[in-house]
């Protein structure tokens, strides 16, 4: 299965942005930049301030990717699916919520925080914000290449489940209590993948899934999501 990469958006320790802004793309193991509503949406957004940090992170990267692909604006809902890979999901929100459970025997548990204690929660916000009605779910993968979400999105495109998919990764920094147990580079990166060649938006090359699960970018094997994004950013055709 081949798909066209037509949008890339990210929030990493080096900053946030999208592919057509150009420049070198990196994902250093540094603290993530704080995200305000104005960083993500030019117009007022009543929901953003109430979201968990995990949701803000994922939603921002999805927003930038769709903006890059020229798909941010919409009138009718669209059958675009999303697959998000995460190591720790909303663990930071879980810890924050659970402190409210411990306060008064559960009597003060926060319903607003609880609504954000699922790894797929930011996909719901993205669906609402951008009218995305395709299949959306989060995955936890055990491999180290961070490419399973891309593979699954390509499978969906191959099966005709959707014509356009978003796929990527989303993780906040590891909470201190878990620092000795988990190692990851915090950040969120999403790619917009289309089954057909994009007409007006960017073209970052073709990503292909071959039988043994290997991912190719413009015909060359790619070993990680970071490598894929770097290659795509290098070879951008506008």
């Amino acid at each position: 299965m081949d798909a066209y990469i037509c949008g890339i958006g990210w929030v990493t320790g080096a900053g946030f942005g999208w592919g057509s802004q150009g420049g070198e793309w990196t994902m250093p193991d540094l603290p993530l930049p704080p995200l305000t509503r104005k960083d993500v949406f030019p117009e007022p957004n009543q929901r953003f301030g109430r979201m968990s940090e995990y949701t803000k992170l994922g939603l921002a990267a999805v927003t930038f990717a769709l903006r890059d692909a020229g798909l941010e604006k919409w009138a009718d809902k669209r059958p675009i699916g999303v697959v998000a890979s995460t190591r720790l999901g909303c663990l930071a929100t879980d810890l924050e919520y659970h402190t409210t459970v411990l306060l008064d025997g559960g009597g003060l548990a926060s319903p607003n925080l609880f609504a954000y204690t699922l790894a797929n929660c930011f996909l719901g916000d993205a669906a609402i914000q951008f009218g995305l009605t395709g299949s959306s779910f989060a995955i936890n993968e055990t491999g180290g290449d961070n490419l399973d979400a891309i593979r699954m999105a390509l499978e969906d495109l191959e099966q005709g489940e959707a014509d356009t998919m978003l796929a990527g990764i989303c993780d906040l920094a590891v909470p201190e209590a878990f620092a000795d147990s988990v190692s990851l580079t915090p950040g969120a990166v999403f790619l917009v993948l289309a089954a057909t060649a994009p007409a007006a938006s960017n073209n970052y090359g073709i990503v292909s899934l071959v039988g043994d699960g290997t991912l190719l970018h413009n015909g060359s094997a790619t070993n990680s999501l970071f490598e894929l994004v770097q290659r795509a950013m290098t070879g951008i055709i506008r």
Binding site: R87, L118, A119, A138, I139, N140, T142, D148, F178
Partner: peptide, 26 residues
């Protein structure tokens, strides 16, 4: 607490070589 060790445990318990993925869609 993370899902990955649980996946590895399940794969090992079932005698599988690859650990697979977990799906979270509420």
């Amino acid at each position: 607490v993370p899902m990955a060790p649980l996946l590895q445990h399940i794969a090992g318990r079932l005698g599988m070589t690859a650990s697979g993925i977990n799906i979270n869609a509420a």
